[in-house]
């Protein structure tokens, strides 16, 4: 199954993305665990793009593509925001105690852990973030 949704540049759009994902997962009968992993990775990636990707939101173009096969799924985020490769962000340190615990910065860590691979490309003024998931 191939599907695509275009999103506006506001954080309220994440709820629309999640409702759309729930419908696609139900159509494909995707099990709860991979569905949850895909949803979480896309939430983190799209939140970053909407929060930090655009100085001027008027011309923002943000799309999510979902390709679900028998044994793997690919989720792709495409946007025309500033060049940003989340894989270059230093991973947040795992929390060990109250005093040193960082409050945020766990999004990229979760994306790395819950996907089987992530690639970022910048071409034609667009970021293309591809996250792959094993369904086996």
């Amino acid at each position: 199954m191939n599907a695509r949704i275009d999103l506006g540049c506001s954080l309220g759009e994440i709820s629309r993305l999640n409702a759309w994902l729930a419908d696609r997962f139900a159509e494909m009968g995707l099990p709860e665990k991979p569905a949850g992993n895909i949803k979480l990775c896309l939430n983190e990636a799209v939140t970053n793009t909407i929060s930090y990707g655009f100085a001027d939101r008027d011309g923002a173009e943000i799309s999510v593509e979902l390709d679900i096969g028998d044994d793997k799924a690919v989720a792709t985020l495409i946007d025309n925001g500033v060049a940003f490769d989340p894989l270059t962000v230093p991973e947040a340190a795992k929390i060990t105690d109250l005093e040193t615990a960082q409050i945020g910065g766990f999004g990229v860590k979760l994306m790395r852990e819950l996907s089987s691979s992530i690639d970022h490309e910048r071409a034609g003024g667009r970021n293309r973030l591809t996250m792959r998931f094993d369904l086996g």
């Binding site: 949850g36 983190e44 960082q102 945020g104 999004g107 979760l110």
Partner: peptide, 20 residues
């Protein structure tokens, strides 16, 4: 039913405030 990093932020902030 769902916990994203933004929810982690709320929990960690609360734990730090309560713990302090």
């Amino acid at each position: 039913d769902f916990l994203a990093s933004i929810g982690i932020r709320v929990l960690v902030k609360s734990a730090k405030t309560i713990g302090s």
